[in-house]
């Protein structure tokens, strides 16, 4: 039994069948990559896991509970965090505050009215946030305003924000999109280190094969809204179906 089980998921936008009977089984504490050409439905599928989209039919089970019909904040409170394609952070706040917010959300739940508590007095939350920033190598920058950072740093900050909640499942939407090779490698190393240091499951959507083959324990290939192959990385490269999906009609 996997931590994330997707069965017969369909999603249609007008005349476009974005997801066509998708089945997926993500084992606990593994890195599962979803690859596929542009427009294959990868992001649509991810959005069905986080509550942004609701599938027309089918089930999405996380840790034995259905995710269908739940709001994004409820799904997060169940232990699912998400990294966006373009880093989504709180640009007007300091880096430390950026990481304290998810820690507060984890401790206090979806809503807590605490107008007379002082952020300054929350040393446990601050220590935890500083610990997370240390793990992604950003501790010295913690008092900087987040908008002043490079894109690579914003990505690392977003990772720290997700890790602060100790999620069971971390969803990454093209974590290295638009990055230089050096930044990409640094991100791969960071992800590997995170995966090795704690019980956590990754679902990674990625275009960059270098990233996918460096990280993934298992790969699902999505084409035209359908999972055409799900296998171990070593078996994916030579698979004719995958070649066809990426390179067009192989018979020509």
């Amino acid at each position: 039994m996997g931590i994330l089980e997707v069965q017969n998921v369909n999603k249609r936008f007008g005349g476009l069948q974005a997801l066509d009977d998708v089945n997926l089984n993500v084992e606990e504490n593994t890195v599962h990559a979803i690859i596929g050409p542009n427009g294959a439905g990868k992001s649509t599928l991810l959005n069905c896991f986080v509550g942004r989209l609701t599938p027309d039919t089918g089930t999405v089970m996380f840790d034995g509970q259905s995710l269908i019909g739940r709001k994004p904040h409820e799904i997060n409170q169940m232990g699912v965090s998400r990294v966006f394609q373009t880093p989504e952070i709180f640009t007007d706040l300091t880096i430390l505050e950026n990481v304290m917010i998810p820690s507060f959300a984890k401790r206090d739940g979806a809503f807590k009215l605490s107008p007379f508590a002082a952020v300054k007095a929350e040393s446990a939350i601050r220590d935890h946030a500083e610990d997370m920033l240390g793990q992604v190598g950003m501790l010295e920058k913690r008092h900087m305003v987040a908008s002043a950072m490079s894109r690579g740093d914003k990505r690392r900050l977003e990772m720290a924000m997700c890790l602060a909640q100790s999620p069971k499942l971390l969803l990454l939407d093209e974590p290295t999109a638009g990055m230089a090779r050096a930044d990409t490698n640094a991100t791969i190393d960071l992800l590997k280190q995170i995966a090795d240091s704690r019980p956590i499951t990754f679902v990674v959507i990625e275009h960059d094969m270098h990233v996918v083959f460096s990280l993934a324990d298992r790969i699902s290939v999505l084409a035209q809204g359908h999972v055409i192959v799900e296998d171990h990385p070593s078996n994916i490269k030579g698979n004719p179906k995958v070649r066809e999906a990426y390179l067009g009609d192989a018979h020509e």
Binding site: P72, H73, R82, F90, P102, K106, G109, A110, F111, Q165
Partner: peptide
């Protein structure tokens, strides 16, 4: 948007 995906209603 980020706040919603951070578990905050």
């Amino acid at each position: 948007n980020r706040l919603n995906y951070t578990g905050v209603n």
